[in-house]
Amino acid sequence: MLKIQNLHTFYGNSHILQGVDLFIKKGEIVSLLGRNGVGRSTLCKSIMGLVRATGSIYYNGTEIIGLPSHQIAHQGIGYVPEDRSIFPGLTVLQNLELGMKNVKKTGRWGLDDMFRLFPQLEERKNLQGELLSGGEQQMLAMCRTLMGNPDLMMIDEPTEGLAPRLVQEIGDFLQEIAGHGISTLLVEQKLSITLNISQRLYIMGHGKIVFEGTPQNLEDYPRIRQEWLEV
């Protein structure tokens, strides 16, 4: 459903993405791993139309490269950025409402579903976004994007800085939404949860994909792990 070919992205003169190829099928959880600064977030932003890129990004049969990001969102791609971008002065409910693209058309997901997935959010629904803890902000950011009814979710480092129990909760969440046919591009730094929940994974090093395969495949290449993942 998503097929990226020969993607290049520049920040000024620095060549960040140097010909990335990647695909995701329907309902798949695909992980994108790599060390700090290799360009994982830049790939998400390029797909979302937030930075200018060249190459080809095919989504459900349409070329989306160069489209403004709100149109890409309407094609069915959802994005949860690394910094979570919670609207600080707005309440949890208002943040969720802004996830809906159209208030008149009810999508697959409603507020009830969000509160079932993360009961904490219901308790805090009238609290301002800036008052939430890091974990709660992550939950809110994911639910907000889900309210927009995406077919593909790109989630950038959701477990960063969270306690193991929360990491587990987020893993469960990702598997639950995958069960509804939503595809996921999960960006992480380390293997941790990705080994258990993703069908395939990509490893990125310095703007290029250096490994592509299943978690089992990776076990046959300890050198790749050593070189591109471990410190």
Partner: peptide, 9 residues
């Protein structure tokens, strides 16, 4: 940017 990524023009 987030507002745009959520589908608002």
């Amino acid at each position: 940017e987030m507002v745009g990524a959520l589908g608002h023009d």
